[in-house]
Amino acid sequence: MKIADTTGHSCPVPLIMAKKALKETGEGENLKVITDNKTSLSNLERFFSDNGMDYTVTSEGDLHTLIVKRGGEDIETTQPADYCDVKINTPEAAGDYSVVFSSQQMGEGHEDLGLMLTKSFLITLLASDTLPRSVLLYNSGVKLASHDSFVIDQLRELESRGVKLLLCGTCINFYNITRNIVVGSVSNMFDMAGEMISVRKIIKP
C-alpha cells in the first residue's frame, strides 16, 4: 500500500503529500495517510469526502491514520495490521541494492520448489541486517503482490519497514489482476528501469 507519512508537518503540507501520493497510487490500491495534526486530519477528511473517495480513520493518541480507497480495492480487505502499524520506520540500514522478481518462483525447476524458495528467501531477507532499497516485481512476479499471495505478509513487512515495492503496471493489466493487488506501488518501466540503473547491485533470486 502507498503511504504518505506526514507526521511533523502542518497544513497545507499533509494535503500536498497526500495528493502527490494519490497520483502515484494505482487503481485498486489503497493509500495510507498518517498525520499528527488535528487540523490537517479534518482537512484531509474534507478533501477525500469532497472528492467522493471512501476512507477510514483510526486514531491512536495524536497519530491519525487514514486509509483511502482508490478504485477497485475494498477497504475492508486491508489487514488490521495496517491500521495499527502507524509509525513508519525509516529503512533500517537500507542497502544500495534492489531485489527483482520476474516470476513467483525462485530459480527454474519444479513449481512447488520454486514457490517455497521464494518464501524462504523473503523471510531470510527480512532477517538480514541490510534491507534492499527496493523490491521490483514484473512479469508474473506481480502476482506476488496479490491478496491471495503466499508471501503477502513478507511483502507487507518489507514495505512497512521502508522498502520501496514497485510493481509493473503493464504486467498487472496484462494478467488482469488490478483488483487483487494489495501491497506496493504501481509503477512503470521508466521508474523501474531507473531504479535498476541507479542501485549498485541487483539481486535476482
Binding site: 497544513c11 497545507p12 494535503l15 500536498i16 503529500m17 497526500a18 495528493k19 502527490k20 487540523t39 490537517s40 479534518s42 482537512n43 474534507r46 478533501f47
Partner: peptide, 15 residues
C-alpha cells in the same frame, strides 16, 4: 491548488 497547496483557512471558509 492542484498540488494541494491549500491553506487551512480555505477549509474553514468552506465549512
Amino acid at each position: 491548488a492542484d498540488e494541494g497547496c491549500l491553506p487551512g483557512a480555505s477549509f474553514r471558509n468552506l465549512e
